[in-house]
Each structure stands twice: as C-alpha cells, then as structure tokens.
C-alpha cells in the first residue's frame, strides 16, 4: 500500500524494538501539510518511539517513512541530521533548553547550527519570541524563567527555522492547564500560520483537542480514528 497522495509525511508498517522490548509493531502514520495530528495512547505504548522514527531521530528496524517524496530509511545519519536542522522543529517536555545560554541564544541555536550569522539568527529569534510573547525574557537564562515561559521559548525555537513539520512530545507535560493551553494555542496558531504540520504526542485529551485528527497507539500499533469503523 502506498500512502495516499498529498501527504507530507507518511509511514507504514513501522517496526522497532529496543532489545527485547517491542516499541513499534506495524505502526502507520500520515500527515498533510499544515495539519495537526495528535498521537495518543497509554504510556509505554510506543508513541514517543513513533515520533522519534518519524522525525528521523531513530531509524526503524523495518518499514518505510516517506517525507516529501523521499524515503527516510535510505538517508545517512548526516542527511537525517541536516533534514532535522532545516525542515523539522522540536518541542520536548523538558530538558531541552541549554541552561548556559540565554533564552534568545537558545532560540537562535537552530539557525546558528544551519550557519546563519549570530546577529541575523538572534534577530529572527527575537521576532519569534515576540510572537510567543516571551521577548522580554531574551537575556534571562532558562533557569530563571517559569515552566510555561520556558516552554514558549522552546516553541519559538522549534519554529524559528520555519520548519515544515514540528514534532512536539508532551509539550505541556510539565505545565498546569492554563499554561498548557496557552502554549498549545500559540503552537498551533503559529504552525497554522506558517502552514507547518504538527505531530503532537500527548496523553492529555484536552491537549489532543487542539489537533485536527488523532491517532491512537496501543501495543506498538497505531489506529487512525478517522478510519476506525
């Protein structure tokens, strides 16, 4: 089965095991440009692994992942890294901001990794921080800002390269509902404006409600809820 046309990122029959632990056992996935897809499921079901495979962080044991017409499995580690730098953005639950760098430096980091000059990168970073309403934190270090603010900085960092796909793994996991909501609103708004697709791994229904569609992962198998019955 080939993925239906029009998909930006599609995967089928993904298998991945960490030693004896089977994380993915024939999972499928697909997402359109500008679409927000929630990946839900109980913890340990393999949803994070699915995200890691889709983002080219971890190569699957078998199965195919096609991004924009290119097969990810055939790429070298360096190619996949370059793809992540330029076309993907990432938001994690925590531990992602470099504690030594100021917030604006953190946001500018992906651009700098792509070779943009420091000045230009930080100017772009500041613009995104304004959009996420955290521009006043630019010279603070991550240790000095609140969790919600830090997460917004992280969202700004994920979007600063204007990626085609943003991967968010429990982006509100460490936040209260009000802060979580705000982060989700800003993330989905910004992504929609930029026509970026968002793969949103979460176990919170209220966070998943910001998606256009959801996929449930259970025991390493995914189920697309639109086509469930």
């Amino acid at each position: 089965m080939t993925p239906p046309p029009g998909f930006l990122l599609a995967a089928e029959d993904l298998h991945k095991a960490y030693g004896p632990t089977v994380a993915l056992d024939g999972a499928e996935f697909s997402i359109h440009p500008g679409e927000v897809v929630a990946v839900m499921g109980p913890s340990g079901s393999g949803k994070s692994t699915l995200l890691h495979c889709l983002a080219g962080i971890v190569p699957p044991d078998s199965g195919s992942i096609i991004y924009n017409g290119r097969e990810l499995a055939g790429m070298s580690d360096a190619e996949r890294s370059a793809l992540r730098r330029s076309e993907f953005g990432f938001v994690f639950q925590f531990g992602q901001l470099v504690p030594e760098l100021t917030c604006v430096e953190n946001v500018a980091l992906p651009l700098r990794l792509n070779g943009t000059s420091r000045k230009q990168a930080e100017r772009a970073a500041l613009a995104w921080m304004e959009r996420l309403e955290v521009d006043d934190l630019k010279d603070k270090r991550p240790g000095e800002v609140s969790g919600g603010q830090g997460q917004r900085v992280a969202v700004a960092r994920a979007l600063v390269t204007e990626p085609r796909v943003v991967f968010a793994d429990e982006p509100t996991g460490a936040l209260d509902s009000l802060n979580g909501e705000r982060v989700m609103e800003l993330l989905t708004d910004a992504a929609r404006t930029a026509n970026a697709a968002v793969v949103l791994v979460t176990h919170e229904p209220r966070v998943a409600a910001y998606s256009d569609r959801e996929i449930v992962v259970r025991d390493g198998r995914s189920r697309d809820m639109e086509r469930a019955i």
Binding site: H52, I57, A82, R85, S86, F94, G95, Q96, P110, L113
Partner: peptide, 10 residues
C-alpha cells in the same frame, strides 16, 4: 537528556 534533545534538532 539535553544532549539527546540537541541531537534531535539536528
């Protein structure tokens, strides 16, 4: 954790 998330974004 930080190292692997830095690797994640390339």
């Amino acid at each position: 954790k930080l190292l692997s998330s830095l690797v994640a974004f390339g």
